[in-house]
Amino acid sequence: MDVSLVEHLLLNIEETVSIVLFGIGFTILLLHRNLIKKIMGMNIMDTATYLFLASKGYITGRAVPIVVDGIQDVSAYINPVPSGLVLTGIVVSVSTTALMLALTIRLYERYHSLDLDEILILAKEEEQI
């Protein structure tokens, strides 16, 4: 593997980690059979993206974008845009999480299982009866 590539990845450590986390979350969401795990995977995937965004806004040596002592210089504060986007995103992921958990409860009430494959098979059988 190229040395400069690894070096660059280490310089971009936050992004690298967030991509790895994104991959882990994506894999859990796609492959894990347990619904609660799937939902956790979804959350991990979302937070990983938010970490990616937030690290994009960060500038070394600059402060929180809250105006202090009337200083309004660009060189004093970090980029506020990603923070705003992530704030919006977090709300979205809470809503989807709540919705999916509610669906999980209802499915468990009905089929007494958390395994998605099993639930799908049971649902199919139930209809045929």
């Binding site: 936050e14 938010y50 970490l51 937030a54 690290s55 806004g57 960060y58 600059r62 402060a63 929180v64 970090i78 990603p82 923070s83 992530v86 704030l87 977090i90």
Partner: peptide, 10 residues
């Protein structure tokens, strides 16, 4: 981590 990245809102 977000605190370290200077985003207390997050």
């Amino acid at each position: 981590i977000w605190m370290i990245l200077q985003s207390p809102d997050l």
